[in-house]
Simulated assay, not measured.
Amino acid sequence: MCVVSIKIPDEILLDLHEDKLQFEKYAKQMIAMDLYKNKKISLGYCATIAEMPKEEFIVLLGKNDISIFSFDSEDEFSEEVLNA
């Protein structure tokens, strides 16, 4: 497992009223959502980064207006609707 560290001034955590663990959780979720939104890695890997079950990660994506459905064209979307 790779470990990545970033330095955040204590004042920022104080301003946010968060402790290190809360901010770490937030950072992992934000990174995971960005990677998923930009189609860098799969939903499963992103859920792992966020340290959440896939179902919870999908809910998090929805709360942040990130869809798990991706269509390359309107025709592809229409075809998917017809096949549903």
Rank of each mutant, 00 (worst) to 15 (best):
F23I: 06
E55P: 06
E80A: 13
E11L: 13
A32C: 01
E76D: 14
S70C: 11
F23R: 08
M52W: 02
L21P: 01
E55S: 15
T48Q: 10
E51T: 07
F71D: 00
M33S: 05
V3I: 12
M1I: 09
E55V: 11
L16H: 08
V4D: 04
F23M: 12
F69S: 08
L43S: 06
S78R: 15
D15N: 07
F71S: 00
E76P: 01
M33G: 01
I68D: 07
H17S: 13
I58P: 10
E80F: 12
P53R: 07
G44P: 02
L14C: 02
H17Y: 14
C46Y: 08
S70Q: 07
L16N: 07
F71W: 15
Y26T: 03
T48Y: 05
S70V: 12
K7W: 02
M30W: 05
K54G: 08
M33W: 04
D19E: 08
F57G: 04
N38A: 03
S78V: 15
I66M: 10
K7P: 00
E55M: 09
I58A: 10
F69Q: 02
K63F: 05
E51S: 13
S5P: 07
I12W: 04
C2D: 02
D65Y: 14
K20T: 07
P53A: 05
E51L: 11
P9D: 02
I12K: 13
F77I: 08
A84F: 07
E55T: 13
S42Q: 07
L13K: 11
A84Y: 04
E51H: 06
D15L: 10
Y45G: 01
L61F: 08
K54I: 12
I58E: 14
I66G: 09
I31R: 03
L43D: 05
I31E: 03
I41N: 02
E11Q: 12
Y26I: 01
E80D: 14
D34A: 12
L60C: 11
Y45V: 01
G44H: 12
F71G: 00
I58M: 14
L13S: 06
I66Y: 09
F23P: 00
A32W: 01
L14N: 12
V81S: 07
G44Q: 13
L13F: 00
D19I: 11
L43V: 02
E80G: 01
S5A: 10
D34F: 09
K28N: 08
S78D: 14
E56S: 13
L60Q: 15
K28S: 10
K20D: 06
I68K: 06
K39G: 06
L21I: 01
L16K: 15
L35G: 00
L60T: 14
E74T: 14
I12Y: 09
I41Q: 02
A84K: 11
A50M: 03
M52F: 07
V4R: 05
N64M: 10
I49N: 03
D34G: 03
